[in-house]
């Protein structure tokens, strides 16, 4: 059986399930919310019998599961409990339940890994470099003088979070910490501050998003450069006139290096951000293991949803 670990609102999961249905696959979907909502969830451990696990009203028999897709897994308690302390301790409880479950599933062939085992940006850069890919010069520091030493007057620089996406809700407005350009005149005046990441900005020709599954690259070019709104971070979408999203084929040499990188970081699936610079060099930025493949698959007609389904079915068959 195939086990799908996801969130209830994830539309990409539905698209893959359509293909699993098409191929008559045996699958079971669990959503993070199944742990809290009105569906039977239970872990029973005693001195005599094997541990019993029930999720979403169904008993999970580990021997039956041959294939797992870690799509997403998260739940926000903020809305239900308007108290940051309560919601963060509930979050910790939820995390431990999740960690227990994922440890049980650890040796089952899977697509993706769960978020907790994902690599930080800095380790990613090191492995990308080891695989022979170009990376932007990067500094993480808490000291102003280090930043001044790193920044030269010729180039421009960007800053972005190492991991945390800050999602601030103030009244009707939502604030997201996109990648943004550093204004050299507005560097912190304090000598020391909270460590932040600074990266030399690569002058973009185009951005490339490459989805990798099972040693195959599916790339898409994003023409974000011609639009001031999307120049620094294309996620700052221009809805009136969206950036061009078109199929792209990376040079074989770059694809080989990306696959080597994926091997180093032990991922069989992920979405990689790349920049093609004005001087025609490819720069690795980061990999997102649970990246949105729909945003590559649909505009480029790659049908990645079917490929994910077929891979899950293959794992399931091999395990029988």
């Amino acid at each position: 059986m195939i086990l799908i670990i996801t969130n209830n609102e994830d539309a990409s999961t539905n698209d893959v399930i359509d293909w699993l249905d098409f191929y008559d696959a045996d699958f079971f979907r669990i959503n993070a919310s199944d742990i809290f909502n009105y569906k039977n969830f239970c872990i029973y451990i005693d001195n005599y019998d094997d541990t019993k696990i029930i999720i979403n009203n169904r008993e999970i028999n580990l021997k039956e599961i041959n294939s797992i897709w870690y799509r997403r897994w998260g739940y926000s308690f903020n809305k239900e409990y308007n108290d940051i302390q309560i919601s963060s301790s509930l979050q910790t409880e939820f995390k431990d339940i999740s960690n227990y479950l994922f440890r049980l599933f650890k040796n089952i062939p899977s697509i993706n890994v769960i978020e907790d085992f994902q690599l930080d940006k800095l380790t990613q850069l090191e492995y990308a470099k080891k695989a022979g890919l170009l990376i932007p010069d990067t500094l993480v520091s808490n000291k102003r003088s280090n930043c001044y030493d790193f920044i030269d007057s010729e180039s421009s620089y960007i800053t972005k979070p190492l991991k945390a996406k800050i999602y601030l809700q103030k009244g009707n407005d939502t604030y997201l910490n996109y990648t943004s350009q550093i204004d050299k005149n507005k560097l912190p005046i304090e000598d020391y501050f909270f460590p932040c990441l600074i990266q030399k900005e690569i002058t973009k020709d185009i951005e490339i998003r490459t989805f990798i599954l099972d040693k195959k690259c599916y790339s898409m070019a994003i023409f974000s450069q011609s639009d001031n709104q999307t120049k620094v971070d294309f996620r700052n979408y221009n809805l009136e006139k969206p950036n061009r999203h078109v199929p792209y084929k990376l040079p074989d040499e770059i694809e080989e290096k990306l696959l080597l990188f994926m091997e180093y970081v032990n991922l069989n699936c992920g979405s990689i951000d790349i920049i093609l610079s004005k001087d025609s060099e490819y720069y690795f930025l980061e990999v997102n293991p649970v990246g949105q493949f729909g945003m590559v698959s649909i505009p480029c007609n790659y049908c990645i949803e079917e490929k994910i389904a077929l891979k899950l079915i293959e794992f399931d068959k091999n395990g029988k």
């Binding site: 020709d205 070019a221 199929p247 792209y248 025609s280 007609n301």
Partner: peptide, 11 residues
């Protein structure tokens, strides 16, 4: 990079 802009598949 001329060869790298591949045509859209009509599959």
């Amino acid at each position: 990079n001329e060869d790298y802009f591949s045509p859209l598949s009509f599959d």
